[in-house]
Each structure stands twice: as structure tokens, then as C-alpha cells.
Design a binder for these strands. Structure first.
Lengths: 160, 160
DNA sequence: TCGCATATTTCTATCATCGAAACAAATGGT
DNA sequence: ACCATTTGTTTCGATGATAGAAATATGCGA
């Protein structure tokens, strides 16, 4: 059993996609464990880092929304990250209720260690792809992302 | 800033991949929440289901290894799943220490509800792909999986 | 049969998360 | 200018998933 559904069938692509997600998750999990962090902490760190890179530093409540976490759980995450020296909290001087999350160099270096080896290995794996193939793949990935978001949205709001 | 790194650059593909993983995770999380289950329970269910479909039913210890979970945590997962009516435990009559995990129809139906809508939406998103494009994508996904596994393995065993 | 290995469960402790309440600061109506 | 309300964050208390160690049960080899 294999030839009537192989060679790029929907089933095969879905199976590969699922495997890739599983492996990526496992990688993140092991990296976190190697650095004494949980998935949530790593997720938080990447979200905060992305925001900082976009020039839009985050507040705890924005982080809570991004991570689908309660406000109190977010405080706990930030306490852990701050204790580990990955970031510090700055009060916004114009609105002193707000806190701005500032990454420490520490965390930037950690991010490097996280993404660089994976990025290098992926780049090597993709080295033989032509420009045309890359466009096809990008289109595939974008379409898959959209499809996933659509299904999820429908799950939340089954009634129109 | 966008055209010198767009159009299928490594960076763009990596970014899309990361987004896809995030969205997939989020989907799984919301589906689980909608059915009163956690990520771990869902993961366990899919692993057990895959094994059953391969004709190789699992034992708790195999499940523990597959999920990177302690034996006791695995017992707890199985207790939850059994209480919810998703599976039952069968003692292996030849080696009565062993337990065989048997899926209930209940869980199969849940699996259907989980994968069918997503599968349908993905299939629609991929409907316009040619056979040649599908082969390219399958190759890309397989190469990416391998690369991720390689990096993870190296992380565990940095010394040769 | 006796001792050791294996499979699973039970027991106890820890820690991430949640919900509610507290606290602090800003905003708006009067 | 004052007080009520709203907003942002943290603290407190409780719940529950998970880990580690010990307990239980079974199989296997000397």
C-alpha cells in the first residue's frame, strides 16, 4: 500500500506537514529544556523579540493576548524571564501604568543560538531549490497558513 | 524593505514555516479546548490512533516514550482519556504486566472531527497545484523535516 | 524456587496556570 | 479641581499536570 496515494497526494502532503510540525515542536521543547526554560517562556521570548525587532516593544497585556495566557500567568512568565536575566521591565514615563518589556543582550544571544543552527541546516537543505520552486513553495505555505486560520476561525464562530 | 529578501529567499521560507507551525499549534490548542482536552491528551490520542491504524497497538510505556512524558504522567493522561470514554485498557493475556491501549469509537469520531475540516480546507487550498509542484513541495517538506531532526539530534549529542 | 528485570500504578511534591481581588495610575463628567 | 470609572499590572489562593520515588504485579533465568 503506497502507490495509489503517494507522489504528492493531499494525504501525503498533509502527513508531511504534520510530521514537520511535530519535529519543530520537539526541537523547541528540547532547546528550551537545554536552557532551563519551558515552551511558554520560549514562545514569550520570540514574541517579545519579534516585536522589539519591529520597533514596537510589547507590554505584558499585549504579550498575554499573543500567548493566550491570563494576566497573572503572564506576570509569572515575565518574573521567570527577568530572574534569568533575559529581559527587564521599564515603566512607561508618559503612562506610568504601562510596562515596557526590554530584551537583554543575554536573550538576543540565546535567540541567535536558537535560530542560527536551525536556519543554517534548513538553508543547506534548500540550497538546490530553484527560484521557481521557491515561489511554488512559498505559495503553498501561505495557502496552508490561510486554510488553517480559516478553519480555526470557523471553530470559534460556527454561526455567521 | 522587502524586495531584496522576498520572493522565496531562505528567510522568507523560514518565516512562513514558523508561521505555519504557530497557526497549527493554535488550531490544535483551540480544538482541544473546545472538547475539554489539553494538548498532551490530543497528542496522546493521535499517537495511539496512528499506532492502532498501523496495526501496532501501543502500551503505556511506548506512549510515554513517544510523548516524552514520565510513566506517572502517562498514567494520568490515560486515566483522563479513559474517563472521557476515548479508550480502554486491555491486559495482554500472554504477558499480564503489559497493557494494550484500545481506542473507542468515540475517539475515532473525535479524530474525524479534528482532521476532516482541516483536511478539506487544505485540500481546497492545494487544489490548483500541479503534480510537478506537489513533488517539489513534498521534497521541500521532507528535506525540512530531516534538517530539523538533524539539528535536534546534534543538540542532544554535541560530542561525536 | 529465588532473585532480578520489566510494566504499570500509587503517592507525594512541585510548579505553571487561572480567577478574583488588590493596587496604581489615567480619564471623564460635573 | 474632585470623585467615579476604566485600564494595566501584580498579588493571592486554588487547581491540576507533571516528575520522581516507592509500591505492586508479573515474567524470566539460574
Amino acid at each position: 500500500m503506497a502507490q495509489d496515494q503517494d507522489q504528492g497526494s493531499d494525504a501525503e502532503l498533509a502527513q508531511l506537514l504534520r510530521q514537520l510540525v511535530v519535529e519543530t515542536d520537539r526541537f523547541a521543547e528540547m532547546f528550551g529544556a537545554a536552557h532551563g526554560m519551558h515552551r511558554t517562556d520560549l514562545n514569550a521570548l520570540t514574541v517579545i523579540m519579534d516585536a522589539a525587532r519591529r520597533g514596537a516593544p510589547m507590554s505584558p497585556s499585549q504579550l498575554a493576548a499573543a500567548l493566550h495566557l491570563s494576566a497573572s500567568a503572564t506576570t509569572a512568565v515575565l518574573d521567570r524571564l527577568e530572574a534569568a536575566g533575559h529581559l527587564h521591565r521599564d515603566r512607561d514615563p508618559t503612562d506610568r501604568r504601562r510596562v515596557e518589556l526590554v530584551m537583554a543582550d543575554h536573550a538576543m544571544q540565546l535567540g541567535q543560538r536558537f535560530f542560527t543552527p536551525l536556519g543554517a541546516e534548513l538553508a543547506e537543505a534548500w540550497a538546490t531549490l530553484t527560484a521557481r520552486e521557491r515561489r511554488t513553495i512559498a505559495r503553498f505555505l501561505a495557502a496552508s497558513i490561510d486554510a488553517t486560520v480559516r478553519v480555526r476561525t470557523r471553530l470559534v464562530q460556527p454561526r455567521p
